[in-house]
């Protein structure tokens, strides 16, 4: 069972039996569940799942219903990483002692958490888990905001975004700080595999998830998760927004192996201007006022610089 699930194309992928169920309480058009489905469907192995407090957690395990067809645990906002690490430790202990209920299984241990739970409040727990080298995957559902509590800024919130705790106003263009570079930070833990994914590029994503599942040690996945509610776009446009995020290179898709090798895994044929991405979202609406033009310019420059940097790293094999 531990062999990698064969997913040649979407038709073949569509024969998967989902282990994430509908009638969860996520918003219509939420990208979280698209990401979760792609992660879970990437393997036929058993799963032990954890979730940090956040949209995914509060919408998928509200008593008396669970939307999970695999064992799942939520403890708190900050500790889904450690919860699943504890379960992984128990697996290792029971395996050694010959007490696993089904000893032939090869379970995968996965934690899901939002950017607030990961970039902010759970940062220390993730760092600890990665330093200790638990055999687990940590997936950030990165919607760049505390969406569950109504749109407060996190350290993943990008410059110029209007949030309830850093709103745009008469004398403010919203968020002033740049998004935290979690990919580099997690790679710097010498994690064996770190990757940024987007659900629109499902093949790239599933390949990375499968590589992650096949990697021994902690794997960090940052998944862009456009939020219809807080990014302020029509729920039907979730995949369009995801396309804009990857094709504008705001969310470049790449992987870092052992903190030594960076590979860009998706190069858009036609790179979309960043303003097309920003303009499709209500959270950046105020940036299109004349007085905020410098913020828009800064955005494009930052994205260009980052893309150059990633390409240089890729070329230099560092």
């Amino acid at each position: 069972m531990s062999e990698i699930k064969k997913i040649k194309n979407l038709k073949e992928f569509s024969t998967s039996a989902d282990r994430f169920e509908g009638a969860n309480l996520l918003c219509p058009g939420c990208a979280h569940s698209i990401i979760v489905r792609e992660v879970l469907n990437a393997t036929n192995d058993d799963l032990v799942l954890a979730a940090s407090t956040g949209c995914l957690e509060v919408c998928t395990a509200v008593y008396p219903y669970t939307s999970w067809d695999a064992s799942w645990i939520h403890i708190g906002f900050e500790n889904s990483s450690t919860a699943v690490a504890g379960a992984e430790a128990m697996y290792n202990a029971l395996k050694r002692k010959g007490r696993l209920p089904q000893p032939d299984r090869t379970p995968k241990f996965v934690a899901f958490a939002g950017d607030g739970a990961s970039y902010d409040i759970g940062f220390q727990w993730i760092s600890g888990c990665f330093e200790r080298g638990h055999d687990m995957m940590y997936v950030v559902l990165d919607n760049e905001v505390y969406a569950n509590t109504g749109g407060q800024r996190s350290s993943s919130t990008p410059v110029g975004s209007s949030t309830t705790t850093a709103p745009a106003g008469r004398v403010s263009y919203g968020e002033k700080k740049e998004k935290k570079d979690m990919m580099s930070i997690m790679a710097a833990h010498h994690a064996p595999y770190v990757a940024q994914v987007a659900p629109n590029k499902w093949k790239d994503m599933v390949k990375k998830i499968q590589r992650g599942f096949n990697t021994v040690g902690p794997v960090f996945i940052n998944a862009v998760s456009p939020c219809t509610t807080e990014w302020k776009f029509d729920p039907a446009d979730t995949m369009m927004l995801t396309d804009l995020s990857t094709d504008s290179l705001v969310f470049p898709l790449y992987e870092i192996i052992d903190n030594k090798e960076l590979n860009i895994t998706y190069r858009p044929k036609n790179v979309v201007p960043v303003i097309d991405y920003l303009g499709a979202q209500g959270r950046f609406k105020h940036l299109f006022k004349p007085e905020n033009k410098h913020i828009l310019d800064g955005w494009q420059k930052r994205v260009d610089d980052n893309w150059d940097y990633l390409q240089r790293r890729e070329e230099a094999r560092v």
């Binding site: 500790n79 450690t82 504890g86 379960a87 430790a89 760092s127």
Partner: peptide, 17 residues
């Protein structure tokens, strides 16, 4: 682990396992 909070968090994950 790296803190007491993580210690009990890990214990909870392990106990539930």
């Amino acid at each position: 682990v790296e803190s007491e909070h993580a210690a009990m968090s890990g214990c909870i994950g392990a106990a539930a396992a």
